[in-house]
Write a protein that binds this DNA or RNA. Structure first.
Lengths: 142, 142
DNA sequence: TATCAATTTCAAATAATCTTGAAATACCGT
DNA sequence: ACGGTATTTCAAGATTATTTGAAATTGATA
């Protein structure tokens, strides 16, 4: 069978009462009505230990109205910062900050044309927005 | 102190130098190498004005490692808070805060079993995680 | 070379989010 | 009713993210 290291079938003799063995093997007096199969618990543990660094970084980048608008705009066309300045009625320095956040998350990149920087979505950014579409379709929420 | 006061419907040869009319009609001396068609600009404007409230709220909820782990766990099975306490090695009050964030975003709900609260994904939450899958598939980039 | 315009960078101020521990709530079994 | 337990709520502080304006950077032009 699968080798799992932790399960000590014997309940710790911590408190006196409540002989109901905790179905998940931890020190919690959960009632029998709430059963959780050991192999389910294994799968939960597995899910919990997966690395979430990249998705969290991406979601942080997406979690701002200005940045999301920038991404939506870039989906239509590559755009120069000066266009954002006008379209979003936004100072250069503020835009620059948010563009950097998006760039650090790997969602956008730019090319230089003289003094002008033309931003565009990366392939990754485009894929992320694809996923976003799937989400946004149900903005029924709450 | 100099303020470019033009904002007329068409062209407006604002400053003297730079005969290149700004292709997007704004006060910016962008070079001819960067053209942007008026109807493209229209589509960009449209994309920018769309409401982003709901997606931003959802991304904010997703943008935290603990919360993402909670969601991943709930995908496997409905779970009692006490299980999270053990599995995530986390205080009740901290968990409660994050569970509330997820609940306010419409991603999770709970049912009460005596003193125990059993959290589960909402339909919306499940759909969101579906979109997340599409994203996570390319966690290559950086 | 000096100047101008587009953009970034920096530092300080402000705002938002998270953590922590204590206290409150609600339900259960006795 | 009582005592215990699971959970939430609250307020204070700690941490992190964002805005702002000024200064630095860079390329183009005269």
């Amino acid at each position: 069978m699968s080798a799992s290291e932790e399960t000590e079938t014997e309940v710790a003799p911590h408190k006196k009462k409540r002989p109901v063995a905790c179905s998940h093997g931890y020190s919690c007096n959960i009632p029998a009505s709430y059963e959780i199969a050991p192999e389910t618990l294994e799968r939960v543990k597995e899910a919990i230990t997966l690395d979430v660094g990249t998705p969290v970084a991406v979601f942080k980048a997406l979690a701002d109205p200005l940045r999301l608008r920038i991404l939506k705009a870039l989906r239509v066309s590559d755009l120069c910062v000066c266009v954002f300045v006008e379209l979003l009625d936004c100072e250069y320095s503020r835009l620059s900050y948010h563009l950097k956040v998006l760039k650090d998350a790997g969602l956008v990149e730019y090319t230089q044309e003289g003094n002008f920087l033309i931003y565009h979505l990366t392939e990754f950014g485009r894929a992320v927005l694809g996923g976003v579409d799937a989400i946004k379709s149900l903005d029924c929420r709450r």
